[in-house]
Amino acid sequence: MEDVNNVLDIAKDDNLYGEVITLADSTADGTFLIHHFLSFFLGNNRPVCFVSLSQSFGHHKSVCQKLGVSLTQKIESSHLNFFDGLKVFGNRFLDTQPENVDISNTTSLQGFYKAIKTNYEDLQDKNKAPPVVIVDSLDVLLNIGYQVKEISAFVQYLCHLISGPGCDARGTLITFLSIGENGLDEEASLLWRSVVHMSNMDVLVSGLESGYCKDVHGKIEVKRRNLLKKNSQKTMQFKVNDKSVNFFASGMSRAVLG
C-alpha cells in the first residue's frame, strides 16, 4: 500500500501527530483507506483505538491479515483496542432496550465518547505514546437516529481528546464516512462538511462520472488545509487490487492507453 502514502504525501515513518484526517466516499468504495491507515499505524507501532461501527472484528481481521498485520496479536500486545460499536449500538437497531435502563450512560454519544476516552487513556498509559483514533464510519450514527449537530460535537470532542493536555505529543484522529450518491444525502453531506471544517486533511473517493468501469474504480481527491498556504489539492484515479491500489493521473489508466 505504499502508493497510497505517495498519493497522500505521507512519508513511510510519518507520525502525523495532531492531525485530523477526514476520509469520505460517494458512489465508489473508499474503505481501502481505512485499512491502509489501520495497517500503516500498526506497522509503525503506533497504538490504535479502532472504533468500528460498520463492520465486525472478523472482517477487519481478515483484511489486515492480507496486508500483513495480525490484529489478534496487536490486541494481545496492547497496541490495538478494538471498539465494537456494533455491539454497543446493536440494541438501538433492535429496539430491545428495557425502559428502566439509563440510556444516557450506555448509548448516548456522550457515554460513547467517555468509553472511547477511557480506552484512549488506557492505551496511552500502556504504550507511552499518543494513540491514533480511527472511526469507521460516522454515517452509521446518522442512520441510527443521531442528529448532525450531536455527531459533529462528538467529533469535536474526539479532536480535543487527541490534542489533550495530558501528553506532549498529540494523537491522530481519522474519521470515515460515506456521503451517499453525489451528495444527495443532505444530512451526510452536511456532517461531512462540518467534519472537514475540523480537519487538516480530507480525502474524498468518488466514482467516475461516466459510470462504472472495470479498470478504473474511481477518483481520489486529497486536500490539505493550511493557514497562509495555498490549499494543496490533488486528484488521481485508482484501481483497487487484491492487496494493493494502483494510482494514475486522470485518464492515464493502462487500460485506457493500451
Partner: peptide, 28 residues
C-alpha cells in the same frame, strides 16, 4: 472551533501580547 487552535498557534508565533484567548471548544 477545533481549528481555532491554528489561530492560537499563529498568534503565538507572531508574539502578540494583548490578545487574551478563551478556549470554549474543548468542553463545548
Amino acid at each position: 472551533d477545533v481549528r481555532g487552535q491554528d489561530t492560537q498557534e499563529a498568534l503565538k508565533s507572531l508574539g502578540i501580547q494583548n490578545v487574551k484567548v478563551h478556549r470554549a471548544s474543548t468542553d463545548l
